[in-house]
Design a protein around this nucleic acid. Structure first.
Lengths: 330, 330
DNA sequence: CTGAAAGCGCTTACAG
DNA sequence: CTGAAAGCGCTTACAG
């Protein structure tokens, strides 16, 4: 059984071990591992490859990184993991990174600016070649002090000079979602919002002069959406429809409505924001303003790797896309 | 504005830069950064700290890793990310790692054994000090060849000598879930299972001599659960209750039942396996056999870091815990 | 086509 | 309490 061969304390083979075994110099080992930059005769290359196989040699990435200054590592900092939108982003970024030969270190700040700052410092110490940061706060001082690392802010709308950011037009997305509900003839559109400032909330306010309905703010979690919905729909003057600022909150909202015996979309119509896989499998499936996560991930990775990034104000805004499912009553 | 200070091309400060600025040797810089192992006078230390601050010095982790042989990096390989149970595991492992001063590189194999193998090789090249692997196959040859890295298999039930693994008693968990349904007096208990061999399926079979109900196998995703449920509950001889082998599949199943106009638990009672946060916020919330993910993550991290691990057959089995919610009809 | 050697940025005995 | 120096394992001009 192959796994049985695991033994404790075995020292990893080095380039020098391979060179000795194959009777060549370390340089040649490097040449065959990287297929260059100098040519190697087929016979020698074969001997080296055999030695690599026999000794189980894997080049020490730290040594290579130190020598070349290239760690082949990207860093991703997220507010939290327990939210499909960030989990989706992590997957998408990881895939893009891998496709370009990079590994990804992901760190979650739990919404704590201090922790976020620590992670960024730690990642920069690891000489990551690019840093993707989804800030806890709109513009975050933590990205300061890592000026030597190409950084892009994700899902944040910074107009600061010298900062590159990418995100959707959340205000317009919210407007699209709210107007879709209005187009169904619902007289009121409540809002379940995040805590803190949010362009989605601004979008909702902007659709009409007068408020469209009640607003409840809570955490961007299932529980937050649940609590907000219990408050909003527990009273008799509940709105006829609601725009929810994240899929996570919408999942909690759906659960609250179910408990209250309110049917979706018959009693309450819902449109949510994010369009993660969660929104496709609720009952009923959620009509949602979809963020193009995969596209944003790809652009962000390309940006940090191919720049220009730092010191350049570059602001990529991707459009959202309303996906009609059943929760809106279409 | 602090972020405005980002400039392109700035070279990161090195230990030598700090030493020069503070008028000390590199050794002293190292001593104050690590608070040892040699003492430094308070005045000198203060000067060094000032230099570090001014120059924005962050020690090069690659150089330190190369010198000490300790990368302070852990590796986690998962089948896929788009499943709450793995996302939860990634969070839990990341937290444990961070608490011990380690960063985590997470790689997802997408269920592909070749890709899994590549990731393991890549991670081992990065000199990760521990490797946590959730195998695509029950016992995986890919963990071979990295004998110098402490490795533990997660959520896998290997009796192979020389392999350390940790997971729940899935067979017993399934038995508990199925028996709970039977205790409600339901005459049939269907099974929505994973593809491939699965101890949960064995547990379900083991409860009675005769089959308890129909079985449908599909992917461990929301879509897989949805498809399986459509097949199982689309026919008139549908079971009165069902045990679903993962929360993801249960979410899809709930959606299918909703489409078919079947109420939970009145028409169909459900118990699922995993107990992730998803199971708490479905409508109705799912009674579930809960895996102690945080506990397993902690034990796994402690094992790879404090061993003994490789070459030792050590098999940690954690109990599951049935969490009663509403989908079972209690 | 191949080898000897420098140097990436650290940490840590060793000497003072 | 501090410094000079070796060496971790690579990659890459440079010389042959």
């Amino acid at each position: 059984m192959s796994v049985g061969r695991q033994q404790p304390g075995k020292r990893a083979a080095t380039q020098a071990d391979v060179a000795r075994y194959a009777g060549v110099s370390g340089a040649v080992v490097s040449y065959v591992v990287h297929n260059g930059p100098r040519p190697v005769s087929p016979e020698t290359a074969a001997r080296v490859r055999e030695a690599i196989r026999v000794l189980g040699y894997r080049p020490n990435a730290s040594a290579a990184a130190l020598r070349t200054g290239s760690s082949k590592l990207l860093g991703l900092v997220l507010p939290e993991f327990d939210n499909s939108i960030w989990a989706d982003l992590a997957v998408a970024v990881s895939d893009c990174a891998n496709a370009r030969g990079y590994d990804l270190i992901t760190a979650s700040s739990g919404g704590d600016v201090t922790l976020e700052q620590q992670h960024i410092q730690s990642l920069s110490g690891r000489q990551v070649e690019g840093l993707l940061v989804t800030c806890v706060e709109m513009i975050d001082p933590a990205i300061d002090g890592v000026a030597d690392i190409p950084t892009v802010l994700l899902n944040v709308f910074s107009d600061a000079p010298g900062v590159t950011s990418i995100g959707v037009d959340a205000r317009q997305g919210a407007i699209d979602g709210v107007e879709h509900l209005l187009s169904h003839g619902y007289d009121t559109v409540g809002l379940i919002a995040h805590r803190g400032i949010d362009l989605r909330e601004e979008g909702w306010r902007q659709v009409r002069e007068a408020p469209l309905g009640p607003i409840e703010r809570d955490a961007s979690t299932r529980q937050g959406g649940y609590d907000a919905a219990r408050r909003m729909f527990g009273s008799p003057d509940r709105p006829r429809s609601v725009f929810v600022c994240s899929d996570m909150q919408a999942v909690g909202c759906l659960r609250a409505l179910w408990e209250l015996g309110l049917r979706v979309p018959d009693d309450v119509a819902i449109v949510s924001f994010d369009g993660t896989v969660d929104s496709r499998f609720t009952a009923p499936p959620l009509t949602a303003v979809q963020q193009p996560i995969a596209t944003m991930a790809r652009i962000a990775v390309d940006l940090v790797l191919d720049g220009p990034v730092n010191g350049v104000h570059h602001r990529v805004v991707e459009p959202t896309h309303l996906v009609i499912r059943e929760s809106c009553g279409c």
